[in-house]
Design a protein around this nucleic acid. Structure first.
Lengths: 344, 344
DNA sequence: CTGTTAGCGCTTTCAG
DNA sequence: CTGAAAGCGCTAACAG
């Protein structure tokens, strides 16, 4: 039966046990240069024997004003992030970087009531997409801890983005030919919590929201090719998942006249459209062309591969974390790459 | 230009501004019953005007010994968790529950050096699988914060499990017929960091590790049907992902004599085997039968559906969080369900 | 119902 | 190189 300490020892306990001052013990742990090697060794050894593992972190946080915890504020619920391949990759990148710097990750849902629960002890924020709850945006903007925003801009904070306008323009341009009938399956374009066509509902108004920029890119391309997007040819899905994607895919594919180019704002949607087309015996790309966005690995595990825009979400995560940890002042625009598959 | 506070106000500042005591301000925020409604309103209003958003959390944590942060310690790196559908679902369940209780989530990698960085201020631990770094296991076991373990047991801590032996026994029993040639594709059975067959390497020795129990279940079923698993017919994969699964799948399907039953320790593996079989023009289930484990949603999005064992990882997460938050002393065994698909 | 006060456990000047 | 002492910002007795 190992001795079970009910309560942890404190620095003070150790100091009095060793007949020295608390400062010296503290220095032994935090500032080795402040005392002789011999004494330090002796103290550390004694601590180990006493079962004192080091200064209490809660006290350290208060005293130093630093916790080594970074909050990643998601656009949505944590559940959502954890199922979305793009968001997952982003987190992956962030955690790689945090790990290198011995920082820890607090995941914060963007639909939380308030950021106040953590604002005081967290060392900084990485906001991945504009939080669904607008209050958080204000709270984050009105405080003094460093912030890096990703995929959107917030005041004068440092940000990481890709050029969504250009990227979506390019992929659409690649797909479109004169006389095409275009449909767009969008992501979180309006506030609705369900899949639907967009007629005249106001678009969600977040400064430079990713999906709106993609929409602009598409529309620009459509325009340049001399086409128009017919009323009722833009779909909204509330979340990037199979369920909503399938609903939209079936609506689009079963609409008449059937569009022959479907511009999808994510690969997940594009893949679902591809599956549905197969089920409905619609030939891709001869009867319907499809483009995606993101370049997730699954887009090259389906046949034909999805034509899409690749962006490195892992890199995005790494970059965001790096900027935050370096206290950099320079926002950054990451590159994207057209990825030609067999769906156009 | 909004007034930017460089430094936050403290309770004391507010108290002196309002010519009252700090205790009263504190009570206004924490214990409404300790002062008149009128005074409380007045204080709260004044705080808002002053720009004081409430007591500093870092100080509160130290003082109250409570942070409302729960650490989820993963078996592996955070990156890994975030890509694995089973682990993601688990996190989903945990976060649902935490949200209901206004707790926050700190993700902790199981391959971290030490748990000390967070041990002092976190309110408790949920360990999802035995952390890869054994030191963490000891550290977690040798401290006083509440712990709930999932998919493994640790000392006398409360745990959440499913009956892996029985589940794997059942699914194998369903698949196996006399004269079958059996192969098993396992998950993290040995320490190796690459895909390989297992001959006589020692199995990873973690108390009641999930995958070993599954192995036992399989072997029991094989035995009961009067078969044996030939030497070299058990494969090890280090992580539950497409890459390793594919390596193992191809090795198995290209081995001669080719096994006609492949028992896979995860659906992800089973699905990859199915894909590879298709590529190699091997008929499933006539030439090769496949079983999976977990019952992830993708297992019913492939044709034929995977025959597998369904376990609710979301429920597991919810349960684990619930036990921790309730301070329950009762471990729990969640149910599983055979899910018959077309792969056997 | 309100105010005073002693810490929570630690770090960091600043004298010695 | 060492030790005494002043807080970090807050809460919870406790006394009034």
């Amino acid at each position: 039966m190992p001795t079970q300490r009910r309560r942890n020892l404190t620095l003070k306990d150790v100091a009095s046990a060793l007949k020295t001052s608390t400062a010296t013990i503290s220095n032994a742990f935090n500032r080795p240069d402040q005392l002789s090697v011999a004494k330090r060794e002796k103290i550390l050894l004694a601590c180990k024997e006493l079962g004192y593992a080091g200064p209490n972190k809660a006290a350290q946080i208060l005293r130093k004003g630093k916790s080594n915890i970074i909050a990643v504020v998601l656009a949505d619920s944590i559940e959502y992030m954890v199922t979305d391949p793009v968001a997952s990759s982003f987190i992956k990148g962030v955690t790689q970087m945090l790990k290198e710097h011995q920082k820890h990750l607090l995941l914060y849902a963007g639909d939380s009531e308030s950021i106040r629960d953590v604002i005081d002890f967290v060392d900084g924020f990485i906001c991945y997409g504009a939080p669904r709850n607008n209050k958080l945006i204000e709270q984050i903007n009105g405080q003094y801890k460093p912030v890096v925003t990703v995929d959107f801009n917030l005041g004068s904070n440092v940000s990481v983005n890709i050029d969504n306008d250009t990227a979506s323009y390019e992929v659409a341009k690649l797909a479109l030919k004169p006389n095409d009938r275009v449909a767009i399956i969008g992501l979180r374009l309006i506030e609705a919590n369900h899949t639907c066509r967009i007629y005249d509902a106001p678009l969600i108004d977040v400064e430079h929201c990713v999906t709106h920029r993609r929409l602009e890119g598409y529309l620009k391309a459509v325009d340049e090719v001399g086409l128009v997007v017919e009323t009722g040819s833009i779909w909204h899905t509330p979340e990037n998942n199979h369920k909503y994607a399938r609903q939209a895919a079936l609506e689009v594919l079963n609409s008449r006249p059937r569009p022959n180019v479907i511009l999808c704002m994510s690969d997940l949607i594009a893949i679902e459209v591809l599956h549905c087309a197969r089920e409905l015996k619609i030939d891709v790309p001869n009867e319907v062309k499809i483009t995606g966005f993101d370049g997730i690995s699954e887009s090259t595990r389906v046949q034909p591969h999805i034509t899409t825009v690749y962006q490195s979400s892992v890199e995005k995560g790494r970059k965001a974390a790096k900027l935050l940890l370096n206290g950099s002042e320079e926002s950054c625009m990451l590159s994207h790459k057209l990825q030609k598959g067999g769906t156009i």
